[in-house]
């Protein structure tokens, strides 16, 4: 296989991924739902999304140092009347269990968590323990969640906001890692 062929296959793969779930879909959904702040730790799959968010003049991106900070920072913003989204990966979500309990579930504010589903795959066996434990973790905490793996699923983000607003509870959107194509 020549270098050109490898490059073409790589570019084709990137384009396919981008066509399945474009970062613009998430940002459009955020804007539609009045999001003011994104509290986040970038992960290896979200760099393009991060760059796109930083470019939006209506959106304030708040980088944090550890996912446990996310729920609490978002709570402060909610108290201030803002509309934050927490954007983290499933590994970090599991790390921040006590924070989700005390600062999100017990707080009585609507919060939407967009969580990268590292290790999830539609085909074959899921081998990454990060993926194996993601949905059991959400179920253990009683967190409702919606799965988004393509542009056509994008309106589920709005559904998550509607549910969060109606229940004043956190609601999770899981992003199918294999398909989102944030990296370009």
């Amino acid at each position: 296989m020549t270098a050109d062929t490898v490059l073409k296959e790589k570019n084709d793969l990137v384009e396919q991924q981008a066509a399945i779930l474009r970062p613009e879909t998430l940002v459009d959904e955020f804007k539609k739902n009045g999001v003011t702040h994104v509290v986040t730790i970038p992960d290896s799959e979200t760099n393009y999304l991060y760059e796109l968010m930083v470019d939006q003049d209506w959106l304030d991106v708040i980088p944090i140092s550890r996912e446990g900070e996310a729920s609490a920072t978002a709570l402060g913003l909610c108290v201030a009347g803002k509309v934050p989204v927490v954007l983290i990966q499933n590994t970090g979500m599991m790390e921040s269990g006590d924070s989700i309990r005390g600062m999100a579930l017990d707080a009585g504010f609507p919060m939407v968590f967009v969580v990268g589903y590292r290790g999830w795959t539609r085909r074959g066996v899921i081998r990454d323990s990060a993926a194996k434990y993601t949905e059991p973790f959400l179920n253990a905490f009683g967190l409702d969640y919606y799965f988004v793996e393509s542009n056509t699923d994008g309106d589920r983000i709005t559904t998550a906001f509607e549910q969060a607003n109606a229940t004043k509870r956190p609601v999770v959107v899981l992003i199918g890692d294999e398909y989102h194509g944030f990296n370009r």
Binding site: S71, T73, G76, L77, V79, A80, K82, D98, G102
Partner: peptide
């Protein structure tokens, strides 16, 4: 703002950004 270990600091930080 507290109710999780060590997280009042982050909540106050969020409040400062929001106000």
């Amino acid at each position: 703002m507290g109710s999780a270990m060590g997280q009042t600091t982050s909540a106050a930080f969020g409040l400062a950004l929001g106000l």
